[in-house]
Write a protein that binds this DNA or RNA. Structure first.
Lengths: 252, 252
DNA sequence: CCTTGTGAAGCGATTCACAGCC
DNA sequence: GGCTGTGAATCGCTTCACAAGG
């Protein structure tokens, strides 16, 4: 998954060719740790919210609190992008938001297609916060030809066969799979076949794709199960402390 | 977040009180690493799918492939639950599924309430795969009283004030927030106030909750932004190799 | 044999703590 | 004086490689 993409990063000729004054730019483009990248959207969200409230400057402490992370982590993350703060003062909100947007590649609009017009697909198509700058839903698709033509929001449902044209003519880059699990692999194959290399998968299944295709999965039943684990452990603990911990034997 | 809950784990009196023959049971209840817990639902999904296809036994290699992880990782994860495999043979599908379900706390049904009956909330309410065993949507709520009484699926929308009764009478344990970002914190406060300590947040914002409340966040715009980062880095790299890398200077 | 279960090594991310700078 | 940026220390997860055992 991510680590496969990571290995692409190793173009060492940069380091041998230059003395080190390029390090900031190179660091900005190159090795941002996955864990940091995953937090950047949160920082951007927090910055946007601060900007809306008219705040123009923040310390790492304040921004970290707003984004729900520690200030040390925030500073380390930002240090991978470059040096955009002022010591003794903090960060300028607009500037930092711009730099993060640039790092994430949100200065351009990425064309997105949603596949699967069931409940979830229609909700996603209608979801406005979805288009939080940087993304543009250009097509809604469904395998069921009887749905083709149906208007959803201000787009009409198209057929899967249109994928090649979307990639070729409209530079479609990102596919969102909102189908049931049993058709998700088929949809993924078609997306990949058409040239899409970034997929957001809402179906509760693992997709098998070539190593240069990036898949991210969103699955609410997985999330609920993780919550259940902790909820259960919590209540289980109460039981254990009630009986004064003589043995670790638990009745099943 | 997770680490806050983690600190609860340190009840050392177990180790001092017993010699070590309880370690298996204790390990099963206690220190399963967060990263492992987060993968268990995926294993369960894969096992369910295998069982449906009539397969009754798997090796760690096969199951790992089906779940999209390495076999070493799978074995290490399972070792935290106990020793349920047979050397030289593999795992019995049904047995392992049962053990994982037990570890996750899915042998009981957790009552869930969904708050926010916009597009997303209604889609979640209708989402069947949602009730993949272990969860039971017992209530749909909305702050807007004009929606109260509206039928959604086989439930009618209820008012926020019903939360206390739901926790008290129906043991509501998990709240799903499907509201816009600006009302999410208010909803979280009400959930926490009523006694809910596990929250799944679909709103694109950070929730401020007491440290004993666990929040997991699902945010598709975050996911899209992570995909955009990699997509951009990929196309950016092509540009760099085209010009033969003399200096790391990148035109912005 | 073959595959599990697991110490030990390796690696990446987080945290600490302070030098550097405004 | 106060806050950023960062080497160094630490922590936890992943991977390796092999002993244990059917």
């Amino acid at each position: 998954m991510a680590s496969q993409v990571r290995t692409l990063t190793g173009y060492h000729h940069f380091k041998t060719g230059a003395e080190g004054h390029v390090s900031a730019d190179v660091a900005a483009r190159r090795g941002i740790p996955d864990a940091s990248v995953a937090r950047l959207p949160g920082y951007l969200q927090a910055l946007t919210s601060l900007a809306e409230r008219g705040i123009s400057s923040v310390s790492s402490e304040e921004l970290a609190a707003a984004a729900g992370v520690s200030s040390a982590k925030l500073r380390k993350d930002l240090s991978h992008l470059g040096s955009y703060g002022v010591r003794g003062v903090g960060y300028e909100v607009d500037r930092l938001a711009y730099e993060i947007s640039t790092a994430l590649g949100l200065t351009q609009d990425w064309p997105v297609a949603i596949v699967g017009m069931g409940n979830l697909g229609r909700a996603l198509a209608a979801y406005s916060g979805f288009a939080t700058r940087g993304f543009n839903v250009i097509a809604l698709l469904d395998r069921d030809d009887s749905l083709v033509g149906t208007p959803v929001g201000d787009l009409a449902v198209r057929r899967m066969g249109d994928l090649d044209a979307l990639v070729r003519d409209d530079r479609l880059a990102i596919g969102v799979i909102a189908t049931p699990a049993d058709s998700a692999q088929d949809v993924a194959d078609r997306l990949v076949g058409a040239g899409v290399r970034s997929i957001l998968n809402f179906a509760p299944c693992v997709l098998d794709v070539p190593s240069d295709v990036m898949v991210r999965k969103v699955d609410m039943s997985t999330e609920l199960q993780i919550l259940a684990f902790h909820e259960q452990r919590r209540t289980g603990e109460l039981d254990l402390t009630a009986q004064s911990g003589v043995e670790g034997v638990v009745a099943l």
